[in-house]
Nucleic acid binder design. Sequence first.
DNA 1: TTACAGGTTGGCCGG
DNA 2: ACCGGCCAACCTGTA
Length: 530
Amino acid sequence: MKHTSIHWFRKGLRLHDNPALLAALKDCAELRPIFILDPWFPKNMQVSINRWRFLMESLRDLDESLKKLNSRLFVVRGHPAEVFPALFKKWKVTRLTFEIDTEPYARQRDAKVVKLAAEHNVQVIQKVAHTLYDTERIIVENNGKAPLTYARLQTVLASLGPPKQPVPVPTLENLKDCGTPCKDNHDAKYGIPTLEELGQDPEKAGPPLYPGGESEALVRLDLHMKRTTWVCNFKKPDTEPNSLSPSTTVLSPYVKFGCLSVRTFWWKLAEIYQGRKHSAPPVSLHGQLLWREFFYTAGVGIPNFNKMEGNPVCVQVDWDDNQEYLNAWREGRTGYPFIDAIMTQLRTEGWIHHLARHAVACFLTRGDLWLSWEEGQKVFEELLLDADWSLNAGNWQWLSASAFFHQFFRVYSPVAFGKKTDKSGEYIKKYLPFLRKFPTEYIYEPWKAPRSMQEQAGCIIGKDYPKPIVVHEVVSKRNIERMKAAYARRSHSTAAQGDDKASKKGGKRKPPAGPSVIKLLAKKPAAKKN
DNA sequence: TTACAGGTTGGCCGG
DNA sequence: ACCGGCCAACCTGTA
């Protein structure tokens, strides 16, 4: 039987290593590659113009690549649950293929679509290709729970063996008996939208530093992979958060949208490592891909992963609610140049270094402003080109010492941290040019410059640039105490401990009939099964 | 049950 | 440029 296949692109915006697309092509008479502009997304999350642009560029590239295979991309507007029944009938579809997406909205969306497909006698084929492993499989292998430490993940993965090899790119030969019927009005009806159609003002887009698309991704991958020594010596903590051009690959946006297959990336690195001395996880480039796997697995296995409430691994903290602080952070008006420069780079360019994310995330939450990591998560979700549900939620919990990382007494200094790799503040001067005339000595702390010097620099602190929003030395000490208190409350509700000290000396072992049912449920089996 | 090791990326001071 | 120790002391996983 010859099929009429829809291949549904969502993430996985590529032709290489795309097993679901290959499945669509098998015994296929008619191929309909589609992308659905689902109004759920802009309604439920802010999307910056830079990320819209990246997505549209990726779709354009996909369409161009499909043209070379005598096919085209159909961009369809509407809710998937409404779009599919219409398309199934209109195109007489017999098969639907797509790559598995594990995010919560994607899961419920896809469940509905699978049901609709069954009702229309459409065969559905779903393939894992967005992660190195099937994250469900990792969880099963780890006794039904997501690993909470990197070492644990590594142990589990060792038992699963290496990730799968990428599958081949479809060729004209694959498509020789398979057509994509296109009408003259294809672009009018199924074309890729302009930024204007998406309600965006193209004037407001940032510099085109990271053009979207599979072709661009593969070029960039090749470019970086040619730097053999650099690849082999790569240690993430040694890379610089505040270099004038990125100190890392910035392949993350391409991996996020699936313009670049994580397996292709993995095996390319393996090829380079082969026979050479090289760095190892967690700090190596392989290690970075495993971090992604770590958080993806956590996102699948931990309920309410992008929230504090109802999230069993997340410490419940009494974060403040302060819109003024939040706006100042978001808009780069905290008065700490290092923080404000990073937030400016984020807003204008859509990418900041991982350690820069650490600095501003710590500052927003446990370090200085004591605001909820969920607020930071929303801002990153809007502004980052590589905004990725699982990684964003996981890393915000990490940095706020809410989960995974617990040494809350290690606080980043908004002054000292940046100096380690950029003593003279070139990075600050690039993104906050109005500070450029301050002498090096004061570039991280311009409020300490004498008035005459501020005048000479043409920038009065408190007028042209804000005074520090908080005094780091004071608030960070207080916040450590608040974290300590939050952790103490947690141990009361989860374990047998009464008062920290009392329980150690033979207090009652019986867990209190708990306020936190969720935590008990999560904790108990963990303690028993291992 | 209890102890202990280890945790991708802290700051600061002194050598 | 890099080390060690101190600060004060969290968690998870394992034995």
